[in-house]
Structure formats: C-alpha cells, structure tokens
Nucleic acid binder design. Structure first.
Lengths: 210, 210
DNA sequence: ATTTATATCACCCATTTTGGATTATTGTTT
DNA sequence: AAACAATAATCCAAAATGGGTGATATAAAT
C-alpha cells in the first residue's frame, strides 16, 4: 500500500490490549498509519528521529518516564510533532500539566474509536482535540471571577500592578497622589489577605480577579 | 408541541438573514427551541428574566453594546445560562476577551448548520464548543516556552517570586544566602530586561516562562 | 585550553514598599 | 437620614528591594 501521503502516527501506551486496539483503529483510517508502538517513553524517544511521527498518541501513566515528561522531550526533539494525550485522568492538575508540557490535545480513555479518529482529524486540521469535560476545564480557566471582592478602582490598580508599575507610575497614570495609590493598594492587600505585590498577583491569578 | 423538555435558546445577532437562519437551524432540532431573537444586547437583557434562556447564541459585532459587554451582563444576571459566541473574528484578543467575559463556547460564522447544532449539543453535555482554530489558540496559551533564556535555577526562583515569596523566604527555601537569591533575581531582571518583581512576572506570563 | 554560563556569596547605598494610624469626601444603599 | 463602601489624602517608622561592584568555583561549550 502507498502510505506516503498518510500521517505518521506513533503510539505510546503500556497496556498491550489498549495499544493494539488503538493501532487497529488508527490503521483503519485511510488518512493515518501507525509506524510503531511502544510501551514506554524511553524506547519511543530513542527511535523518535527514525520514526519522525506527525502525531504521537501518548498515555500519561507509564512505568518509567511519565507521559508528561516524555511529551516535553519529544516536543523538544521534534517540535513539529503533534502530541495527543490519552488518559483515564481528567482532573485539572493532570490536564494543565500535560498541556503546559506541549500536548495539543487531550482525550479520555473512555473515548470510542469515532472520537479517537475525530481527534486525529482535528489535530491534522490544525485544531486541538479535547474531550467534553477537558474543553470545559480549559475554558473555565479564562473566566473572570464575577464575585471579586475588589472595587473597580482597586481592580484597575491591581491590573497596573500586574503590568509591573510602581506606586509612582500608578499615581501618574491615574492622576492621583502617590499616597492615594498606596492607600488603594493597602486596601487590596487587606481584602486579599496578602502583604506584597507579588502575593497579590498570585492571589489575583488563582482567584481570577484580573 | 410540548417544548418543556427542550433547551431554551435566545439568539442575539444584528443581521436579520443570519438571525433567521440560526433560528431555523436551532428549531430544526428536537432538543432545542428558540424563545426569542434580538438584534441588540440592550433589548435582550431587558427580557432576560422573562426568557430565562439555557443557551444564548451571541454575535460580537453589534450596534450599541458589544456582545462581550452583553455576555458579562447576562452571566451576571443569569449565571446558569451558557453563552456561545458566534463571530467572524477569530483573532486571539477577541477570543480571549470573550472567554474572560464568561462565554463557554466560541465558533466562527463560517460554521455550517451541523457545526452549530454540534455546538449546542456539546454545551448541553457540559462541554465548551470551539471551532478548530479557536481551540488551538486556547490550547497554545498553555504551552510553556521551550526557548526560555533563564537557567533552571533562575526559573525555579521566578516560580517562587510568582508565589509571592520575598528574598528572605526564597533564600530559606533554597538554602542559599539572601545575597545569592538577590543575585539570581538580578540576573533574571537583566535577562528579561525588567527592573522589579512585578515586571518580571508580567514578562514571565507574556513569554510563558513559568 | 580558554572562554562562557551558572551558581554561589558579600558589602554599600539609595529608593521603594510596607505597616500602622487617621481624616475627609463622595456616592450608594437601606 | 443613616450606614456603608469606595475614593482620596497625609504622617512616621521599619522592612524589603534594587543598583553598583566584586569575588570564587564549577560545569559546559568552543
């Protein structure tokens, strides 16, 4: 069969049955073919320059190097490769860690073969396939907290702090005295229960205040 | 027709042809029905407590209040409502602003009726429908910059700064002297071309260094 | 072999930030 | 009308930060 136009897929998954089943599914599509499958990242990485995959299907829970560590290394070695995480876990820490490490897709193991092929299609079109719950997790990180304890003015000043502005710069930008800027900032600290700018920014980020 | 089990949909879109076409598409599904359509946010907001929509399809480019401002107000008034933005624009500023304001979906106007209904289904299942390009924009915001100019130690210290730690706390946590911590921080400032912690954090965020 | 980058530590000095206490005006809500 | 929150301002003292300058040791790169 002529496979030159097909997208090259590598599978890294330690459960042999799941691995074989993924391989069958991927090879059932005329658009993709599986070059190689591995039960650990270390072996996959050794072969990565021979395989030159376009797409890597990556399990996270592996013996030895985790799928997240493996994702970092593979993206470092062949940045053009697109990595889709397939995991039983859909908790936020795991998902965000995987995405930070360079994955461009994240689907849960409950996905059926249609969803798996849809994910491969989506990544081929330049998208970022995600299972329902994952997509919502991701989108929710963008939402601003509508119950911010801060007033408009305080939020505005916190915004300026986040841009690295000093008391003086803030007072100049808002046409208020330095002491007034200070007064606002102290009120911000009191409301957020912090003691310095960086802590305020940490709190602002985790509580999505700005 | 008994519509009590159907999801209640409101459409806000100023182009009458597009508006009518959306209405037809949504009503063609047994799972949804259109309560009302509006050509501006102001009118929609006046009726929002009567309409009590489960889902709002929102255009961004409107005369009067923008769809983004409207999204904020609607989410404030009826937080359970899910808002899907439908826009011709798919540039990052627009997308991120819309998501920050409270939207849980963002699809482009090039979407066909299948994609529109798929988006409604996805949001009903608790997901976050996005067009291909939007999903990738969103996911890319998570990726850490693999070309960081900072050393491992410097990145570690920047991480501690982002948690609000002071020089003293950093030195204690890493078992180094205060002056060493300071020295690292100064090197970080020099590499990032900034002059204080907050600016460093702003730069770290925009360049995705941590 | 020599430079370069990294990580460590130190001292001086000026500026910035923070802590605490207090007052006053405006605007909104009850 | 009273109560409250937000905004604005000032004073003093203590702590933290930032800029200058220099040094040592080790590992990595050329």
């Amino acid at each position: 069969m002529n496979t030159s136009f097909k997208k090259r897929v590598v599978i890294i998954e330690d459960d042999v049955e799941i691995r074989n089943s993924y391989e069958l599914i991927v090879n059932s599509s005329p658009k993709f073919f599986v070059l190689n499958t591995y039960d650990n990242c270390e072996d996959a990485i050794k072969q990565i320059h021979n395989d030159k995959p376009d797409i890597v299907l990556m399990d996270v829970e592996l013996s030895g190097m985790s799928g997240i560590a493996g994702t970092k290394i593979i993206k470092d070695k062949i940045p053009h490769a697109e990595i889709i995480i397939i995991s039983v876990y859909d908790n936020s820490e795991m998902v965000f860690e995987a995405l930070r490490s360079g994955a461009s897709g994240y689907i849960t193991k409950s996905s059926n073969y249609i969803e798996l092929l849809a994910a491969l299609d989506e990544i081929t079109k330049g998208g970022a396939p995600m299972s329902t719950k994952i997509a919502r997790l991701v989108i929710d990180t963008f939402h601003i907290n509508p119950n911010s304890p801060l007033s408009k003015r305080e939020t505005q000043i916190l915004q300026l702090i986040s841009e690295g502005k000093t008391y003086t710069q803030i007072s100049e930008e808002l046409f208020i005295s330095k002491d007034t800027a200070k007064s606002h900032i102290r009120n911000i600290y009191s409301k957020l229960q912090v003691n310095n700018k960086s802590e305020a920014l940490a709190k602002a980020t985790s509580d999505k205040l700005i």
